[in-house]
């Protein structure tokens, strides 16, 4: 029962990731693509959590933490690129 529910959840996460990849490819503007990338990051974290429940192991928890940190930093970097046009600036002017 629980295994079936987890499998169905993994399947829906796969479908959602495919839809987000579609949005990244055809996305009309840059913010659409960034939101889709952030969605893919969050859904990957959830999928890894479900896989670690299915396999009853705690070996993937570091992977979840590192993936969440990288998704956070990459979203900040893309947002700063949209707003300022530069990611690492030498001196900020505000």
């Amino acid at each position: 029962m629980v295994q079936g529910m987890l499998t169905v959840a993994l399947t829906f996460y796969g479908i959602s990731i495919c839809i987000s990849v579609f949005r990244i490819i055809i996305g009309p503007s840059l913010p659409d693509r960034i939101v889709a990338l952030d969605m893919i990051g969050v859904m990957l974290v959830s999928s890894i959590a479900i896989v670690s429940v299915m396999l009853t192991t705690t070996a993937f928890l570091e992977v979840i933490l590192i993936l969440a940190i990288l998704a956070f930093i990459s979203t900040i970097a893309f947002s700063k690129y949209i707003e300022r046009g530069v990611i690492l600036e030498y001196r900020r002017d505000d």
Partner: peptide, 22 residues
């Protein structure tokens, strides 16, 4: 290696949010 990469990503977060001079 992975510990150093995570440490570097923390520094990169600071460099992105603030500026290099600060």
């Amino acid at each position: 290696f992975s510990g150093g990469l995570v440490l570097a990503s923390a520094l990169v977060l600071l460099f992105i949010v603030f500026d290099i001079e600060t």
